[in-house]
């Protein structure tokens, strides 16, 4: 009881910039319904048709991964996977890879 059904993809491996980028890429592919290989990490979330409701959900899912509170407007402030990864990596002082 009170446990939500997992609708989002599990985060695998240690928290690194690379793993974060991979999770965002796969998450976006799931949301949009396209193959992972077709995701362009330099394209804006908005151009993929993600609305503000989804943006808030994604930042909520990310909170659980980085275990800290994030701005609900995060995806607007850092509108691409590359920008968002770079921001979180700097903010959390993440290694690029293990």
């Amino acid at each position: 009881m009170f446990k939500r059904k997992k609708r989002t993809r599990e985060f695998e491996g240690p928290l690194t910039a690379e793993n974060l980028r991979r999770w965002l890429t796969e998450h976006l592919a799931d949301r949009v319904g396209i193959p992972v290989a077709e995701v362009d990490t330099g394209r804006t979330f908005e151009s993929y048709g993600l609305d503000s409701r989804v943006a808030v959900q994604v930042s909520g899912a990310l909170e659980k991964i980085v275990e800290r509170r994030l701005s609900p407007g995060l995806l607007y402030e850092h509108p691409t996977i590359d920008a968002l990864t770079a921001h979180l990596a700097a903010e959390l002082r993440l290694a690029d890879r293990v």
Binding site: E46, S71, Y76, E77, P79
Partner: peptide, 8 residues
């Protein structure tokens, strides 16, 4: 879009 949070 990044400018949207540059308030005030």
């Amino acid at each position: 879009m990044a400018a949207s949070f540059s308030y005030p």
